[in-house]
Amino acid sequence: MKKQQGLPRSSSSRPRSLTDPLVSPLQFVNQETKIEDLETNHFVLVHGGGFGAWCWYKTISLLEDAGFKVSALDLAGSGIHLFDANDITSLPQYAKPLTDFLEKLDNTKKVILVGHDFGGSCISYAMELFPAKIAKAVFLAAAMVKNGQNTLHMFSLKQDGASDLMHQAQTFLYGNGKDQPPTAIDLEKSLLRDLLFNQSPVKDIALASVSVRPIPFAPAMEKLVLTDNYESIRRFYIETRNDNAISLSVQQIMCESNPPEKIFLLKGSDHCPFFSKPQALHKLLFEIARIPPIKNAANQP
């Protein structure tokens, strides 16, 4: 595909490592930077399809050790949330744990939303509803749709071999009978490593293999309505170079079609950098948190 022009980019310069062993996150902190001086020190982590809050355990530890406040949520039918994925019939229902959290958030507080995979559509939906409570939105190898698009439309743009692997791994579930539309998508456990975790440590693959749940189908088909509320929030995209689930080319297409403020590239990362490149991901999240707010005469004293 044609190389993208005009969008500001950055990349992780860390050497490729399959394990990316954890070290003190304080090494990433500029000594002149104080967490309390940032626009917000609160990250809200939103998992992708089939995952849960459990997948962020390394990121939570690194951010909290650096002084950030972190909230990781289970969307409906995910993680330890009690709903059955086959019974979730809309995006608002699927994203309700996130919207409930933001609704209860103090009106004087703002957060940085981070959405992975299908979580990108969920944070977009939340951005439309609560623009005053969101300082920045980070799309991590995520669906970043435009008004009138749905998640499956964007994920169907695959132009390389990744689409074949995804199709092999997917099994449609029909909770309402075979004569009705699918209600959920399950992923073949034997293909998870190649599809999602091709650069991740064995222990994290083992955790995922017993924790991943079916993905509700209807929310992925639902078209988002996005207005100036969504557009008013600063967006950042983190691309994953060695991603077999959402190929780098598809991520670039989404960024070209719906340009964020800045794009970062995680080298040596599979679809799940919170497993495969936790230090590099932490460094980028910290860098995004440090970006100062844009001064606007209309809303600045």
Rank of each mutant, 00 (worst) to 15 (best):
P15Q: 02
S13V: 06
H81F: 02
P181Y: 15
S124P: 10
D65Q: 11
D37N: 13
Q31I: 14
K203Y: 06
E64D: 08
I263S: 15
S163Q: 12
Q170D: 00
D228G: 07
L152K: 11
E287L: 15
G175F: 06
I263E: 15
A126S: 07
V44E: 14
R193K: 08
N242K: 05
P219A: 04
A206D: 13
G6H: 14
K34P: 02
L281D: 11
S232K: 04
I263T: 15
S71T: 09
D179L: 05
E231F: 08
K104S: 15
K267P: 04
G49A: 02
K133I: 07
L224D: 12
A76N: 03
L45N: 15
D37V: 09
I288N: 15
I291D: 14
P25M: 07
K262Q: 09
F68K: 00
G175T: 10
S90Q: 06
Q170S: 08
L75H: 07
D164A: 10
M166A: 02
N147G: 12
I112F: 14
V23S: 09
L22T: 09
P8G: 13
I288L: 11
A137P: 10
I60A: 02
E32P: 10
I80Q: 13
S17Y: 01
D20R: 03
L7N: 06
S11W: 04
S121L: 00
Q5R: 00
F236G: 14
A85P: 03
N86C: 12
T40W: 12
S249R: 03
V70M: 03
A143D: 12
F28W: 14
S190H: 11
E128L: 01
K283P: 08
L26V: 10
Q199C: 15
S24D: 15
L113V: 10
F236H: 13
N176M: 14
S190E: 13
Q170L: 05
K34H: 05
G119V: 07
M254E: 14
A66M: 09
S200G: 01
R14I: 00
L63H: 00
F172E: 11
T240Y: 02
R14D: 04
L281A: 03
V138Y: 09
P21L: 09
M166K: 04
A208R: 10
E188N: 14
Q251A: 07
D194Q: 11
L226A: 12
T99F: 04
